[in-house]
Computed example of a mutant assay.
Amino acid sequence: MHKLGSTALLAAGLALAPLTQALAQDRPDIAVLIPGKHDDNGFMQAAYRGYEKIKAELDVNASYVSNISATSDPALLTEAMRKLAQEGPDLIIAHGGQCNGPAEIVSKEFPDIRFVVIQGHVQGPNLSSYVVRQEDSAWLAGALAGLTTQSDVVGHISGAWPKPGLIGRAAFYDGVKHVNPDARFLTWFTGDLDNTDINAQAAAAEIAAGADVIYTMLNAGRQGVIDEIKSHGGKVRHIGNVSDWTQVDASFVGSAVADASVAILSAARDFTTGDWQPDQITEIGLGQGEVVKLTLAEDVSPEIRQQLDQLAAKLISGEIRINTTYEGSEFNPATGEFVDQSYKEELKAKS
């Protein structure tokens, strides 16, 4: 009897194995491309959270690649995306506006694969973009900086130069100027989202020039700014982005939350339900759940909180329209001088 049972179980196992394989093959293959470090406590980690949400919530075969280029080199990103496409997934989700150009190139080479760029602005016959409107929370972060600065000097530091980063910087500046027209603005792109040393140096230079509130749009490199700000004994405050940094360190007066992991899950879910459409840009912004918002430290006054709530309502209603272009000069931390924006083209060529 025991022998027959074993044979029956063995037979069942042999029968089930091909069926299990067939079911796995029927699931869509979705690959997530993460240009930077997937554990950077910043924008790239949001992509990894999106990948984890796909794995947990959707019946798909999900995979990811990460840590391709700290400087968002277009050639390296294009080659990584091409290599991923050669493996034949049904959908490739590329994270970050730095993937715009690579996606336009590779999607044409692989017309049978669907492509999505998160925080992208590209479209095509098999290509779409999903955008979390980080400019909404960045504008409110600017308003917070303008309302809380004591020196009337506000700083901004970012790493790479993809379009979403430029839009976010412009929105932050617009928010500063809306509430504090006399504030001086110090802005710089260091060229590297992950390097703690160069971003700390940029923060030190902006603080030396009078900045007492600094907004960072960084990944792993943010830690360098945190350490520099904390060395000033509470005289300088920090505003983070992507996730809620007020829960991480007391130096943060606020954080411009824009959870791109939701966009990744939305793109994947749309693909599995048949709702995904090519040649479109799908936006998720302020007032659409908890995806985009400004969080505040406990010591922000009730008066400022009320002002920010009123401003948020005007953004949602359209009464306030965000200027997403910044035409001003940039502050070179190496020299302490202001330079024309064309100067960064030289830095791009060197990075």
Rank of each mutant, 00 (worst) to 15 (best):
T148P: 09
D212N: 04
R169N: 14
E206H: 04
T190S: 00
D136W: 07
D136N: 12
L193R: 11
H238G: 08
A138L: 02
G240Q: 01
D182L: 03
Q223G: 06
V225E: 00
L186D: 07
R237L: 05
W139R: 08
I239V: 04
V236Q: 00
Q150H: 12
D152Y: 08
D136H: 13
A145E: 02
D227Y: 00
T187Q: 06
I239K: 03
A211F: 04
T148W: 10
S231K: 05
T190D: 01
N180E: 04
A138G: 07
Q134C: 10
I214V: 06
Q201F: 12
V213K: 09
R184N: 14
L140M: 13
R169K: 15
G175I: 04
V131H: 13
S129W: 12
Q201R: 12
I207A: 05
A203Q: 06
F172G: 10
N195L: 04
G175M: 04
V225W: 00
G240H: 02
P162C: 10
R169T: 12
I239L: 03
A141I: 04
R237H: 11
V225N: 01
A209K: 10
G168K: 03
G155E: 00
V176F: 05
I157V: 13
P162E: 07
G146K: 01
F189T: 00
I239S: 03
E228V: 01
L147M: 07
A141E: 11
D136E: 10
V132S: 00
L147Y: 08
R184V: 14
I207N: 07
V153A: 04
